[in-house]
């Protein structure tokens, strides 16, 4: 699976970068997030209740930050376990660009794969589910950070 997205966030690049690295902000902004814990240097663990089509489960995601170039870019390496619901894994390359005014353009590119029940039943739905999760995240993120203006 591959997916690319772009959002404009109404805050400075430094502010966006800071927020993206703040587990409390992330916990508030990821829909269904039960917890977001720092597990080490550049490592998080998230517990998220999510639904992909008929597959509903609590997923545990281990997230590692790589290639960190503050405040411009990083790559998230993510491994998601959903028990009987299956698994997902992949990476997300995130880039922040300064725009005119006090805005930041965030682009992401996800490459990943899914397995188990998620793939068996949800493979057609997972793209849409990922896009929906991303949209929901940035909507909340924009509100959280100040004023909203998702594109």
């Amino acid at each position: 699976m591959e997916q690319t997205g772009e959002y404009t966030v109404p805050a400075s690049r430094e502010r966006v970068w800071e927020a993206l690295n703040d587990p409390e902000v992330l916990e508030r902004c990821v829909e269904g997030c039960r917890s977001m814990t720092v597990t080490g240097e550049g490592e998080f663990e998230a517990v998220v209740a999510a639904k992909v089509g008929p597959v509903k489960a609590t997923f545990t995601a281990a997230i590692e930050l790589h290639d960190v170039v503050a405040p411009e870019s990083y790559r998230l390496q993510v491994g998601v376990k959903g028990g009987a619901a299956g698994f997902a894994k992949g990476s997300a390359a995130v880039q922040l660009a300064e725009c005119s005014g006090d805005e930041t353009r965030l682009t992401y590119h996800i490459e990943g794969s899914i397995g188990g029940k998620l793939a068996q039943i949800g493979s057609r739905l997972v793209q849409a589910a990922a896009r929906k999760m991303a949209a929901s995240f940035f909507e909340r993120f924009a509100v959280d950070i100040g004023r909203s203006q998702g594109v």
């Binding site: 794969s113 397995g115 793939a119 068996q120 039943i121 493979s123 057609r124």
Partner: peptide, 12 residues
């Protein structure tokens, strides 16, 4: 699929 996941695994 190329990773061995059955993607035709339901009546969908």
């Amino acid at each position: 699929d190329e990773t061995g996941q059955l993607v035709s695994g339901s009546y969908m």
